[in-house]
Nucleic acid binder design. Sequence first.
DNA 1: ATGGTAGAGGATCTA
Length: 258
Amino acid sequence: MRVATWNVNSLNARMPRFLAWIKETGPDVVCIQETKLRPDVFPHLELEQLGYEAAHFGQGQWNGVAVISRVGLTDPIIGIEGADGVSEEARAITVNCGGVGIMSVYVPNGRSLDSDHYSYKLKWLMELRNHLENNFSPTDNVIVGGDFNIAPTDKDVWSVEAMIGNTHVSEPERRALQNLIDWGLTDSLRHFYDEDGIFTWWDHRGGAFHKRQGLRIDYLLVSKPIESHLNWALVDRNARKGDKPSDHAPVVVDFSMP
DNA sequence: ATGGTAGAGGATCTA
C-alpha cells in the first residue's frame, strides 16, 4: 500500500496539479491538508472519476483536512475531542482505509512563541495523543500523516541560526511531538534516511526552494506493525517545482500490508 | 527599514 501526505495550500488552486500528480504517482491513500474548502464544494466527483473515495473536514477560508482512498474508506471521525469538546477548527480527520487507521492532521502553526496560538499548538498536540489512545492500540495498523509545523531536530532545518526564537523548533514543541511519537509511532522517512537537508516545506518568498532553504515539517508517522513492513519513503520534490506549486512537497511511503 | 509570495476574498488575515 502506498500512502502520501500533502499540504496542498488550497485544493481549489492546486486541483490541476493535484489530479496530475495522483494520476502520475498512483497513491492508494492521500492525507490532504489546507483544503481551504467549504464542505459543500469539495471535489468528490472529480476524485471519484479517478477511483478515489474521500472524507473531508472543511471550514472554508482556512485549514481543512481530507483523506482520499482507492482501497476503501470507512468509519470517519471528524476532528479530535479535547477538554473543550471537538475543536471547531478543521485540523484532523480519522478514517479506516483497507484495514489501516489513517489520520490527516494540520497542526496549528503557533505564529510566535508569545502567542496564544503557540499554547494552543501545544495543547492541540496533547489532545492528538489522547485521540490516538482513545481510538487505537499501538499494535494496530496506524498512520498519522500531516503538516506538523514542527522541525523535529536541527537536522530538519536549513539554518539553525535563522530559526532562533521562532516557532517550529522550540523545545516545548519538540517535546510535544516526541510525546505523540512515544505513543508508538515512527517517523517513516527517518526510518530510511538519517542525513540533514531533507525538507518538505520552502517559503514561497525569496526563492527559498532554489536556495534549499526549507524545513522538514510534514511526515508520515507509522505504528510498529507498519514500520516493520516499510519498503521505501521519499519526499517528492518534483511536486514543488514548476507552475503554481504548493509551498509543501508530498511525502510518500510504500509498505506491504502486515 | 519586517520585506519578500501565495491564497482567500474582496480589506486584510494567514502562513
